[in-house]
């Protein structure tokens, strides 16, 4: 895929987890900034055997700007969780640039672009979307189940001492469906929980 392909023209369904992410992608498209959706899963916690216990996949990577962006438009409890993950990410991967967009930032962005009316429908649980045609159980009442969703990590090559350059983005987007990723995440999380700890 050329850079031009990456930023111009209609995009395939990226299976955004939240309407605010789709809106953010449209803003990036508008300003012709190339982006990748959840291209990299960073392991952030391992058990003593080196199995990944917790991972974090920032929502966007902007390859030309070399920055990851995480949108947090959900409940305060999840914001605290995201803050903790971002702190951990920065500790483990100090060369990585990540910007956390809080609900207030997103709201301000919408205000700036004259789209304040959309804020309520793009924020919080109202903005949550499920992938097309997927019925993977009822919607999570507290937003995206980050730990399960993203615990799978780069299977088999999760390096507990990942170098700074471990932030290399992967493919443009993970082509597995959200449900498939969620199932894989659950399997990985279950395996991690049951892994013998020595």
């Amino acid at each position: 895929m050329t850079d031009e392909d990456a930023i111009i023209g209609p995009r395939p369904d990226h299976g955004f987890a939240h309407a605010s992410e789709a809106e953010f992608a449209r803003i990036l498209d508008f300003y012709q900034v190339a982006w990748e959706y959840e291209p990299t899963v960073f392991p952030i916690l391992w058990d003593l055997d080196g199995n990944v216990l917790e991972s974090f996949a920032p929502d966007f990577y902007l390859p030309d700007l070399e920055i990851f962006v995480e949108l947090t438009t959900l409940q305060q409890r999840l914001v605290r969780k995201k803050n903790r993950k971002v702190r951990r990410l920065r500790e483990l991967y100090p060369g990585l640039r990540i910007k956390l967009f809080y609900a207030r930032d997103f709201r301000a962005l919408m205000l700036k672009y004259g789209r304040a009316a959309l804020v309520s429908e793009l924020s919080g649980a109202l903005g949550q979307v499920t992938s097309r045609g997927e019925t993977d159980g009822p919607a999570e009442p507290e937003g995206r189940p980050d730990d399960l969703d993203r615990a799978s990590g780069p299977k088999g090559d999760a390096d507990p001492i990942a170098p700074d350059t471990g932030a290399e983005p992967g493919p443009r987007h993970d082509r597995r469906s959200r449900a498939a990723r969620r199932r894989a995440g659950r399997r990985a999380a279950a395996a991690a929980v049951h892994a013998p700890v020595t």
């Binding site: 111009i8 449209r26 498209d29 508008f30 300003y31 012709q32 672009y113 004259g114």
Partner: peptide, 14 residues
């Protein structure tokens, strides 16, 4: 042009 512009149409490019 600014994103959003004067319409609610969110498609298009700057």
């Amino acid at each position: 042009s600014s994103y959003g512009g004067t319409s609610t149409e969110s498609s298009g490019l700057v």
